[in-house]
Design a protein around this nucleic acid. Structure first.
Lengths: 239, 239
DNA sequence: GCAAGCCTTTATGTATACAAAGGTGAACTT
DNA sequence: AAGTTCACCTTTGTATACATAAAGGCTTGC
């Protein structure tokens, strides 16, 4: 009873699949075959189907009857809108959480920032960035809102990674630094429990990320920007 | 081939179940047994399970391993937050749609308003109100955003109905009229393609609905307002 | 040589059957 | 009499097997 050992197969499959998608192991648009997964994870197709549906609920996977499942892919427009959504609703979540954050939470935040300064691995930086924000949301009392926010984070994570690898890879050293400074601003406001200041810092942070991402967007993709229904991946074609 | 004849069983089941939930036939918190549904709809439990997962993706159903599925129920807090979310993201969807609305769309809007004035059946008024707003969103180009908005509408619909039956039932004749006036304001702005005015009207409309709903909230529910995890329904206990 | 249609192949959708987890009620103990 | 425990029963989770639809390659005709 250490934690909650994978109780049901479908949940176990869902966890593994989610990890693969979020880690970038499976890129947006990648086809997911039920048989393959079932055999690899030594289970039947039923739990796999269940898992796919669960991930569809999280927005990570898109299914179409008789046509299989794919890792959800976004158009450039969807990606941009995702950030506009975040800009508008994450301040709500933040305000709901900040007043209840403990000193220990603040210490955790500082810890994440420290770890972030000591790494230059992009994948780790992605994970730490995510951890940072979710600590700030840790004491929320609005599961519904948190669920929506998490969904947007999930579906955009692959693109965020693609962007960062592009942006960092170039001579663009300043980008990461700006990001860190914004986190610092957010942290300071949170540490002082200044909710509105923290909200403002968060909005600025998300907005700047969006504009930066849009500026790189046309480099990332071959997409015209039209809303393409299903099969064609937009960025990061898997093959 | 009149429309799209129920192609796959799971989709058919999902459609039927969704209709029952949205119509109020199944109240929040109601238990859904796979066997029952499967037998009634003359299919096996597999498509039923699939359908439940689909509805979980839409937020209409909440599942827990080994404990069954229930119609999603919201706490008072969740309900209030839902409206705060709507207030912040629906203007985005509206702005995305209004510039592309055709004259025919405008005519449809007027038609819905007319039909609404001629009815005093609450269930029909609910449906018409929903139809009205979704016509204004009809020409959007952001499926992801629309999906999130639809989800919030879906999960709150039962509560909206419960509130309206309470509010209208009383001597509160003015509530419905206010609602209609707000729709009229929104319509006028849209007809003139004044996006920002329309957004302002929409925000006002949602905000007023929220405050009205909160004012009645304590009458509707026995809930203390705490976020209750799973089984206990909050409003509209089914038995 | 190219295009179109049929056929094979492959993957998904569904049914039946069995295993296992949860909840409920009754009986027994304190 | 009240609380607790155990067993049964209900309901969900999973595996195997079969049906069906989509996709791609082959053939055939022009």
């Amino acid at each position: 009873m250490s934690k909650d050992q994978a109780i049901v197969a479908s949940q176990r499959v869902a966890d593994i699949l989610a990890e693969r998608i979020l880690s970038g192991d499976l890129a947006p648009g990648a086809r997911i075959k039920q048989d393959e997964l079932a055999e690899e994870l030594e289970t039947s197709r039923i739990p796999v189907r269940d898992a796919l549906r669960m991930l569809e609920a999280r927005g990570l996977v898109t299914m179409r009857a008789n046509a299989g499942a794919r890792v959800t892919s976004l158009t450039r427009r969807d990606l941009e809108v995702s950030y506009e959504i975040r800009e508008r609703i994450e301040p709500l979540l933040l305000a709901d959480s900040v007043p209840h954050l403990t000193d220990e939470d603040i210490a955790d935040l500082r810890g994440v920032m420290d770890r972030n300064e000591q790494t230059d691995d992009i994948d780790e930086a992605i994970a730490l960035g995510r951890e940072f924000h979710w600590i700030t949301y840790r004491r929320h009392n609005t599961p519904l809102l948190a669920q929506i926010v998490e969904r947007v984070w999930d579906t955009t994570q692959s693109y965020r990674r693609a962007y960062m690898k592009l942006a960092m890879g170039g001579a663009n050293e300043g980008a990461g630094r700006t990001h860190d400074i914004e986190h610092q601003l957010l942290f300071d406001a949170i540490a002082k429990r200044e909710v509105e200041t923290a909200q403002a810092a968060l909005v600025m942070h998300i907005r700047r990320t969006r504009t930066a991402l849009v500026r790189y967007g046309h480099l990332l993709s071959g997409s015209a920007g039209e809303a393409i229904p299903f099969p064609p991946p937009v960025l990061d074609a898997v093959e």
